[in-house]
Design a protein around this nucleic acid. Structure first.
Length: 211
DNA sequence: CTCCCGATAT
DNA sequence: ATATCAGGAG
């Protein structure tokens, strides 16, 4: 895989989706952290529906600590995995209060030490809440399209991230994920990719096999 | 590797 | 009915 191919992919997607922005609604780092945790195996549409009410009720880490686990579970129920998510959000909130003056840490080491937070979530928060870049967030869309486009042959998200970091210019690490998520939801879908409408069609090794 | 898990598209 | 959705932990 030549670096030029990746640059062309990024150029075409930027042109197709100018001003692409993160779809998860948030107004501060804590909201983005919670929103990203809730987005695991759940559509961002539903996450935004849930957080619209959630963020009016829970404004600080202390608010998540104060409420009972059962009540928080009910408040995030429809996002799925609600027991794990509620437990992690409560536990993580206690850590923020105890160790970080109730604030969300702005570095990879501290973020990934939080329960329910691994590199994907940390990369999203770092890039979109703090303007920092320490890696490339590899979610289901980035994984699927990186494989289809031939940017990696690995299926492990950690290895995919390493492969992508070697190919994508660091100045594009943040927007790369946003572009692929946007494109993956509209065109390069998991079940029925719309290759006929894809701006990457001519340089995608998988285009023919998807008609 | 399995488990967590509701909601929606196909 | 089944696959999939801004994953992560054990």
């Amino acid at each position: 895989m030549a670096d030029e191919t990746v640059n062309e992919i990024i150029r075409l997607l930027k042109k197709e989706y100018p001003g692409v922005r993160i779809a998860l609604h948030h107004s501060n780092p804590l909201e983005l952290l919670v929103s990203t945790i809730l987005s695991a195996r759940c559509t961002d549409k539903r996450v935004n529906e849930v957080t619209e009410k959630l963020f009016k009720k829970y404004r600080t880490a202390q608010d998540y600590v104060n409420v009972s686990r059962e009540e928080l579970e009910k408040d995030i129920y429809s996002t799925g995995f609600y027991k794990n998510k509620a437990k992690n959000i409560k536990k993580l909130s206690a850590i923020l209060i105890e160790n970080f003056n109730s604030q969300v840490p702005d570095n990879m080491h501290d973020l990934t030490a939080l329960p329910g937070v691994a590199r994907k979530t940390a990369n999203i928060v770092l890039s979109n809440a703090f303007g920092k870049v320490e890696g490339i967030a590899v979610d289901t869309h980035v994984k699927r399209q990186s494989l289809r486009l031939g940017l990696t042959v690995n299926k492990n998200p950690g290895k995919i991230e390493t492969d992508l970091m070697a190919l994508v210019p660091k100045s594009d690490w943040g927007i790369f994920t946003l572009l692929l998520i946007h494109h993956g939801r509209r065109v390069c879908k998991s079940r029925k990719p719309m290759c006929g409408e894809c701006v990457l069609n001519s340089l995608c090794p998988s285009a023919f096999s998807f008609g």
